[in-house]
Write a protein that binds this DNA or RNA. Structure first.
Lengths: 211, 211
DNA sequence: CTACTTATAGCTGTTTTCAGCTATTTTTGA
DNA sequence: TCAAAAATAGCTGAAAACAGCTATAAGTAG
């Protein structure tokens, strides 16, 4: 049996990025690029027939959300290492990718060296992040929870109840308030979190870790 | 002004663990142990008056859940580095702690060297994990995402739009469907995810990583 | 002390959601 | 190919949400 090469696939909607990565990685004999894909579906089809030890995965794709794609990849081929390769710097996006099975998160602005280091770390079974990503994860959500409305204690209390599926009337009864009061808190929550309706509200609150 | 020492606090319900950490860390002149606490509340009170550069935080505490405590710590003192120090090996627990602002996750079974290394890395602003934790994060979760209600493609599509704050009519227009159709999908979503209303729906969907 | 914020309460009218049904066509799987 | 599942469309009526206002008491910070 031949020695297993580190087969690498690349999924990115910009062909030039794929090209660059191929050129970069082809120099190293221990790597073998098995494919570059601009659409998530293409890669999924590929993965059903062939194998890839590691995949560099952009989050922003034309046909499918990268978070979902990551989960799909891990379902089809649990041994494939997913390394997120993205422009997004949101803490929540990073954590989401990890939650969905990614082994690391690289920013596209990373240096060549950094990319190579991270790929190697990922291949060794480690989770790995580019420098800036580490900082983003490490720092408490300064940028986030700062400009993000800080809610009053009462508002947070009510937000949690809303998220729990309670209606305005439910909440009013539970907290011994008039339904009008609860309605107002609700309105303030929508406004503060710039949400259009409850669905939007809960999503924002969840992303901002308020629940 | 004196040089800032690396002030360390320890929160753990087992005094013997606190004792061990104190003895271990006191040997290093660059560390200063400012307190050991067996209850979350005690530490919160402390943190309101004093400072700690880093806190080793057990997740299992008698009075308060470590996940919540972590968030509270980050709220009171955003600069304090929280390093989870726990027995729990669940992937979800690890990710939850990160999401709540922890800078790393150490298993209690870690070697002395590993603990010291991780503390140093955390102090340098990096996120850090003990070896086994890295493996846990890296390996895909097979059992988790299985039993979760499998939604149809259309349902997922509509779920996302709902989470995005779109109303039934919005969605109907966007997808060229009758509003009745969208209403039905909506009902099916509520039923499948056992949600009482949209708020509940989005929360469940978020927790189950469907969005 | 004053101004601001928070929490409270109220009203009106419109829009949206939700529960409860039926029913047809299309797609899929066994 | 036959049955099941999914997607589509429809209706009604009640409940809830939402927008847009006003207003007062209590507490807080400058």
């Amino acid at each position: 049996m031949l020695q297993r090469k580190n087969t690498i696939a690349i999924v990115d909607d910009h062909p030039i990025v794929i090209e660059g990565l191929i050129r970069l990685l082809s120099k190293k004999p221990e790597y073998e690029i098995v494919g570059g894909f601009t659409r998530g579906e293409e890669f999924i089809s590929f993965l059903k027939k062939a194998k890839a030890k590691i995949v560099l995965l952009d989050i922003m794709l034309p046909d499918i959300n990268g978070m979902d794609l990551c989960k799909t990849i891990k379902t089809i081929s649990p041994d494939t290492v997913v390394l997120a390769f993205s422009n997004y710097q949101e803490r929540s996006a990073i954590l989401q990718m990890l939650a969905n099975g990614a082994s690391g998160y690289l920013l596209k602005e990373s240096s060549i060296e950094e990319i190579v280091i991270c790929i190697n770390e990922a291949l060794n079974g480690q989770i790995t992040f580019s420098k800036i990503v580490k900082e983003i994860i490490a720092r408490p959500q300064l940028s986030e929870s700062q400009d993000f409305a800080q809610l009053t204690v009462r508002e947070k209390e009510i937000l949690k109840l809303i998220a729990d599926g309670k209606t305005t009337n439910d909440i009013a009864e539970m907290l011994f308030l008039s339904k009008f009061t609860v309605e107002n808190h609700r309105k303030n929550l929508l406004q503060k979190l710039k949400a259009k309706n409850v669905a939007d509200l809960i999503r924002h609150a969840t992303l901002q870790n308020l629940i």
